[in-house]
Amino acid sequence: MRVLISVDMEGIAGVVDRADIAPGSPEWALAREWMTDEASAAVRGVLAFDQDAEVLVCDAHAKYRNILPQRLDRRARLVRGTPRPHDMLTGIDSAVDAVCLIGYHGRAGTADSVLAHTISGAVISSVRIDGTALGEIGLSAALAAHYGAVPVLVSGDDTVAAEAEEVAPGIRAVIVKWARGGHAAENLHPAVASERIEQAVPEALAARASVRPPRFAGPVDLEVDVRRPEMTERALLIPGMERRGPCTLGFSGLGLPESYGLVGVIADLAGIA
């Protein structure tokens, strides 16, 4: 069995504020430890289910250099650094059997969700694939399913659990904190959060046949809403990109992996504005 563990930071137990996730801040230094420990817990859970499994951990926050390599379970391999293909899900291919999403957060616009956003909170207000609004949970689940991998588990706050069930019915959710606003939460102790993740992963892998992830066949239609009209200008230099509204960019004809990658390109170009 081959399992990919994608690890973001906003949904980690204890993380509630932008200072917690900003590289270089004292709070980020602590959050890196919590993030690495939750990733290691997921690794242990995979190997409890299948001791011969190949486990790849993908650092999926900011510039993808947050997880502490020396602190991570040594039985896993770690993907870190950017730029790279498939961004938050680097390592996904047809050989991967299952995907775990650790430390994920709600999509942009989710009320009372801790640090909710989609790809870039400063730039993007919505992403739609064939008319379906997807946050990072949905995009990652859809990309996993495209390659035949099952998104079996997600961890984060209670709004994450609700969103995950909406986009991928049957996925197992581990709630490590309860949102009390966009920058506040009732948190489990980091050690307890890790314990719950470790216990849930084998159960999620055993039940993977019951998950119904989002699937998009063939070329898809991508729409991205940015926050200000001037943010569309540089993205419109991409051949084939359309302006469909003052703040809406559209692109048709690409497959799901290419459309997934294009969202990140739009975020980078529009962010220059």
Rank of each mutant, 00 (worst) to 15 (best):
S94Q: 14
S94R: 15
S94H: 14
V96H: 03
V96S: 03
V96P: 01
V96W: 03
D97W: 07
D97S: 15
A98R: 04
A98I: 11
A98D: 13
A98L: 12
A98K: 06
V99T: 09
C100Y: 10
L101G: 09
L101R: 09
I102N: 08
I102V: 15
I102H: 08
I102A: 08
I102M: 12
I102C: 12
I102T: 07
G103I: 06
G103E: 01
Y104V: 06
Y104M: 14
Y104R: 00
Y104H: 10
Y104S: 02
G106V: 01
G106L: 03
G106E: 01
R107G: 05
A108Q: 07
A108M: 05
G109A: 10
G109K: 11
G109S: 08
T110M: 11
T110I: 10
T110F: 03
A111S: 12
A111D: 08
A111R: 15
A111K: 14
D112A: 07
D112L: 05
S113T: 09
S113C: 15
V114F: 12
V114I: 14
V114E: 13
L115G: 00
A116R: 00
A116C: 08
A116D: 10
H117N: 06
T118H: 02
T118L: 04
T118A: 04
I119S: 10
I119T: 13
I119A: 10
S120G: 05
S120D: 11
S120Y: 01
S120P: 00
S120E: 03
G121Y: 01
G121K: 00
G121W: 01
A122Y: 04
A122P: 01
V123P: 05
I124E: 06
I124N: 05
S125E: 15
S125I: 02
S125K: 10
S126L: 04
S126C: 03
S126N: 04
V127H: 08
V127P: 05
V127Y: 05
V127M: 10
R128L: 09
D130E: 13
G131R: 04
G131D: 02
T132K: 08
T132A: 13
A133F: 03
A133S: 11
A133K: 11
A133L: 13
A133H: 08
A133T: 13
L134P: 00
L134C: 01
E136H: 03
E136Q: 06
E136P: 00
E136T: 00
I137N: 00
I137H: 00
I137V: 11
I137Q: 00
I137A: 01
I137G: 02
G138F: 04
G138W: 02
G138C: 14
L139M: 15
S140G: 11
A141M: 14
A142M: 15
A142K: 13
A142C: 15
A142E: 15
A144E: 05
A145I: 13
A145K: 09
A145C: 13
A145E: 06
A145R: 10
H146S: 10
H146I: 08
Y147A: 13
Y147N: 13
Y147E: 14
Y147C: 13
Y147V: 11
Y147R: 12
G148I: 09
G148Y: 07
G148E: 07
G148H: 08
A149T: 07
A149L: 07
V150P: 02
V150C: 12
V150L: 04
V150D: 00
P151E: 09
P151S: 09
V152W: 08
